[in-house]
Amino acid sequence: MKSEEKYLRMSFSERIQHFLLLTSFIVLVYTGFALKFPEAFWVKWTAYIIGENAFEARGIVHRVASVVLVAVSLYHLYYILFNERGKKLVRDFLPAKNDITDFRDSLKYLAGKSENKPLFGRFSYIEKMEYWAVVWGTVIMGLTGVILWFENFFLKYVTNTGMDIASTIHYYEAILASLAIVVWHFYFIFLNPDVYPMNKAWLKGYLSREEMEKEHPLELAESEALKSDESKV
């Protein structure tokens, strides 16, 4: 019956944060690339459905989604600064020395040079990369996005060259972030044979013991040790 034990992965607050992040992200990707590729079939279909004000609607929706994303980001900042669970979360996300050795060992293992699979704690180097990439991306997209949004105000300070740079960064960062999510994140959540068809933690909040054994053995051991300590007391 041990396998039916549940291990909390994402609290309700974290799941809400994640949900808002993912929805606003998808909307931003959709409405953002709709500007860059106006003749793409999916843009034309959407525009056809929405009607003649599709272009204006696109801009508004993009800005609304960006506000949601920035708001979630700010809440998350508050969360990691002032919430106990949040504080622990960011501590666990901070890169550590063992991440480099884990990364090295993992590559060896994956390349078939070593039989020893490195054991991961709460967040592997994969998840840490993911997290900090989102932080980096949100900051970059947020800053350049604000410049582009309030071009009248910023023109004076950044000149037209600055506007060109901002839009260039905004565009390439968007490609990078989208590809990272698709290639990196979606693989581990959907295609990863260990969790296929989907890791449901973002919905349920819990992982099974089996999942814990495969993905987070160190965290499992830690929590078992904590439990046995408690039982000893």
């Binding site: 590559l107 293992y109 994956l110 390349a111 078939g112 740079i165 260039t168 960064i169 390439y172 960062e173 490609i175 990078l176 590809l179 990272a180 290639v183 990196w184 693989y187 581990f188 295609l191 990863n192 044979p193 260990d194």
Partner: peptide, 27 residues
């Protein structure tokens, strides 16, 4: 900037694809 980003995208995403293909094969 655009050239830097292109390099970054090709390098990073390329690495990610490679990493995941290996991971998938192993699993």
């Amino acid at each position: 900037i655009s050239r830097l980003y292109l390099a970054l995208i090709i390098g990073l995403i390329g690495f990610m694809v490679l990493h995941n293909v290996l991971d998938w094969r192993k699993k």
